[in-house]
Structures are given as C-alpha cells and as structure tokens.
Amino acid sequence: MEKVEILKYEGVKRSLNEIYQAVDLQFAFAYQKEPGVYQQAHQFVLCRDFLHDAIWAYHCKRTYMVYGFRFDPLKGDKLETRRTLMLIKLPGIRKYIDQVKKILHLFEKRMRIKRTKIYATKQKHVFLLESSRTWMSATQMISLYTLLIRFACNKNEHIQKMLDSVNSFRELMTVWKSATGFVIHTCKDATYFPILGMHLSTVLSNRKALGLTVKDSFINTKREIPSEFHNYSGIISLCDKQTASCSLQAKKQHSKLMQLKKAK
C-alpha cells in the first residue's frame, strides 16, 4: 500500500469535552500541501460532531468554538472540499482497513460516486482516506461517512461477522433492519442498525430534496446556536424522530424524510 507523508497539526491542542466512545477511533480532516504530502487540518477528535463544526466554520467563514474544539478559517484553518480527505487513527487499525474499504464502497456504489482510496502514512496507526466530495456536502453525509468507518473498526465480533456476511448495500440494509435483541445491545453503535436500515435508502435517493447540500446544510444554518448545531446535525438526528425533536432544523428534515417515504 502506497505511503504518504502527513504533517502533524501544529495549532493549540485543546481539552475537548467528548463523551465516552466504545471504539477509540480518532478523526481529522486533511488537505494536500504537495504531491504525496498532506497537512492535518486540526487536532484529532473522537467525537464525530466536531467534524460538522469544522465544515460549517469553513463554509460560513466564521470562527467556531464549541465544547473546547476550535476551527477558525479567519486565522488560516483550511479544508479541502473538492474531495474528502480524512485521517483516521486507532492502534491496530491496519487489520480493519479492508472492512473500512468494503463498507464505504457498498455505499458509494449505491450513490454512484467515486470509490474511496486508502493510503498508509508514515505516522504510526494513521491512515488517509481519499473519497468523493459528496461525503462533504452535508453534516449528515460526513456523519454517515465517519459512522460507517467506526462500524468497520469496531472489534465487536457480531459487527465484524455482519460486515463479512454482506456483499451489497441492499443486503446490509436488510441485515440492519432485522437486527434485534442481543446484537443491538452488544455495543452502542449497533443500536443504530434498525433505524439506519429503515431509512438510509430513502436518504441516499433524496439527498437534494432533504437539503443535504452545502448551501442548505451550512450556508443556510449560519444563525444556528453552535451547541444545537453540533448536537443535532448528524445522520441519527435525521433518521430518528426522538433525536430530531430536540432541534427545529432536524425536526423539519425528519418530517421531510417521512413524507418522502410515504410517497414511495
């Protein structure tokens, strides 16, 4: 596997208010400096919601600080939006890379977008993913992207067997919809399977109608309260009625999703 060079983030590494994660997988956006050399755009984060915050700040050209995380395009913080460049970090991550590629490719084939390429780096336990810009088009999309990666890196044997058993997006949705009892209680991530299995096909087929575009997801949300945007702008808030009820914007999008499902 081709190795690339990653320049470490040199900004202030802040203490982040992050909840416990069963998978100690860390994420950071990157951008290319020169051929084969990429710059880490911000400190590594466990909480995937901070990635929403970074894209929001970049598109709105505003300083954003929430729960200790800061991203400030006005002071030179950068992202690359013509494609998705994501660093992932986890001890022993190499053994999960094939699963990461598999699950992302299932979704990318379903959406008919460019397939993800994965590169080893010269940093220990760090890999670089190069993916379609579609994943950067909305908070819900980058949320789904990173959730899929975390699923693939979960050492839980039931999740790994589930990924091994499927070879298409449709098969995966069928398995997720039928996940009950013991399987969904093996870890927190697995509790999302039924709700995602029920709704993701509709979400992916109606991204524009649901407002999953740069304009609707970022530019039109400039006035949102940072903490509310941070907490309720992910894929679960879109798909789950109870979670969506905590945010007016999420509630509107969930209602639209339900309308689209009924119209099928």
Rank of each mutant, 00 (worst) to 15 (best):
K161G: 09
V4C: 04
K61R: 05
R70Q: 12
Q39L: 07
Y145W: 01
K262V: 10
L128K: 10
K3G: 00
I225N: 12
M162A: 09
A138M: 09
N220V: 05
L106H: 06
A244S: 15
L79D: 04
E228M: 02
V23G: 06
I88Q: 05
S15D: 00
F27N: 01
K75A: 10
A28H: 08
S233P: 02
Q253W: 06
S237F: 05
A57K: 05
Y9L: 10
R48C: 11
D77F: 14
K95S: 12
S247I: 04
H199A: 05
I55N: 03
L238R: 06
K208M: 06
I113Y: 06
Q242V: 13
A57T: 05
L200C: 08
R133K: 14
Q21K: 12
Q32S: 09
T243I: 15
R112P: 01
R112W: 04
F27S: 02
G11C: 12
I88H: 11
E108W: 01
I184K: 00
V37A: 11
L148G: 04
A263Y: 06
I113K: 12
K3H: 08
N156P: 03
W56H: 15
T186F: 02
D189M: 07
I225C: 07
R223K: 11
H185A: 01
Q249D: 13
F127G: 03
K61H: 11
Y67C: 10
C246R: 15
Q43S: 03
N167K: 15
G36R: 13
E34R: 14
A138V: 11
L144A: 06
H105P: 04
V166C: 02
S15W: 10
G211W: 03
V4K: 07
V183M: 12
C187I: 04
L248Q: 13
I93A: 05
K264L: 03
K252V: 01
I184S: 07
R110K: 15
K122H: 14
T139R: 07
C246G: 04
I6Y: 13
T63N: 13
D98M: 10
S247L: 01
A152F: 08
F182T: 09
K78T: 10
K33W: 11
A244H: 10
I149Q: 12
G11T: 01
Q123I: 09
E171L: 01
S245T: 01
Q253F: 00
K61N: 14
F44I: 04
K262W: 00
M86S: 08
Q123E: 15
Q32M: 13
L25I: 03
V66S: 11
Y232A: 05
L7Y: 15
W176Q: 02
K241F: 07
G234N: 15
Q21G: 09
H59R: 12
V12G: 00
I88A: 04
I55C: 01
K78F: 06
G197E: 00
I149T: 09
D72W: 09
E10D: 14
S237N: 14
